Amino acid sequence: MQQDIVFSTFLIFAGASILATFALYTRQPVLIAYIALGTLIGPFGVGWIDHPEQLENMSHIGIIFLLFLLGLDMQPSSLIAVIKQASTIGLASSLVFFLAGFSITWLFGFSQMDSIIIGLALMFSSTIIGLKLLPTTVLHHKHMGNLMIGLLLLQDMLAIFTLIFLGVMKGDSEMPVWQPFIALPLLIGVAYLAVRFVLLPLITRFDRYREYLFILAIGWCLSLAEAAQLASLTYEIGAFIAGITLATSPIAQFIAISLKPLRDFFLVMFFFALGAGLDLTMLPSVAVSAITLAVVVLALKPITFRVLLRGFSERTSLAWDVGFRLGQISEFSLLVAFVAVESSLLSERGSLLIQATAIITFVISSYIVVFNYPNPIAVSDKLRRD
């Protein structure tokens, strides 16, 4: 039944509070409660919310704020220091994951095109899961946090080129392949100049007005996110650039603290929309292949990152930590599936396989991190780090 946005929001947050309470009592990650709620009351469950795509559009703002906050917590010099290492590891690991995804889906009888697109979808790890479970006040200032962010940003760029590739295959893409390479340094340069000559003078002049600083930060974040999207990059990359160019500002930590509740509000919607989008009636047709693919992802990604990172003289404990935090597929994988289906390049069965694999790996990867590594939502006081 069709419901208005206020009633839908009521159902989401009232239901989330109940399931999250149950999850905490039973020592489960709260992210699982949000996904389960979407599956339960979404269009393929009891149908109390039958238009999750509207909420999904809103929930994307949470990802934008998440990347903005990450940028605020990282100094530009720290990011540059890991770019070379992240590039080599990111490209090598993506090739391994593509070949594994292609081979497995081909063996399960999927078409060659389905296998190619599913292989492409497996190249990426989740920015949301990886960074939502990364303590902002501890690990972002260490080498591991910088390395993870470098890897995820590289994967974002690969995702952009994957989407361009799908458009070229369909034959309707007007975007030159070289455009993102030109757009990225231009956007960084414009952002740096805007911060130095516009934002910092405004912050210095009106630093007593906290409400104004809050609005200015949100406006800057969303403006650069939109500019990145118009420049054929992504909202996430624009938001990260917005954050990192403000990282040296004296109000960076004030903005970071102020925006965390807003970020969490939209991220709840994201995980709800993820669960609500899973078609349970078609799930049996891909159950075996989805479980197999998920097991391969959950095992192969930590091992691959561990081997590659150890090859660059990283500590074994750090290599496993990064590997398990990136041991799932990505929200970009869902976007690749959506674009491929719209372009008639991917079958509905192939799309469902990507969705099911994403949810399985999101859930199990979250359990692994929450119960074994420092994170903001750990059920153990020893591991809980905000």
Rank of each mutant, 00 (worst) to 15 (best):
L335Q: 14
L309F: 05
R325K: 12
F332T: 00
F338Q: 06
E331W: 04
I329E: 03
L326Y: 07
L335K: 11
L334Q: 08
T304E: 06
W320F: 13
V307F: 08
S344L: 15
T316P: 09
F338D: 00
E331V: 03
S317H: 10
V341E: 05
E331I: 03
F332C: 02
W320E: 06
S330K: 06
R325Y: 08
F324M: 11
V322P: 06
D321L: 08
W320M: 12
V322A: 10
L326F: 11
A340N: 09
S317F: 10
V307P: 01
L308Q: 04
A337L: 10
S330T: 12
L318A: 15
E314Y: 11
E331N: 05
I329M: 12
L335C: 14
F338C: 01
L318H: 15
S317C: 06
S313T: 03
D321S: 13
F332A: 01
L308C: 05
V307A: 04
L335D: 08
I329H: 04
R306N: 13
T316R: 12
F312N: 11
L326K: 03
L308S: 06
V307D: 01
A337R: 10
V339S: 08
T304P: 08
F312A: 13
S343R: 12
E314A: 08
R315A: 08
E342W: 14
A340Y: 11
G311C: 01
V336N: 02
F312Q: 14
E314K: 10
V307L: 11
F338N: 00
R306V: 05
E314T: 04
G311D: 00
S343C: 11
G323F: 00
S343F: 14
S333R: 01
V336R: 01
R310E: 07
S344R: 14
R310V: 05
V307S: 00
S330M: 11
L308D: 05
F338E: 01
L334N: 06
A319F: 13
E331R: 02
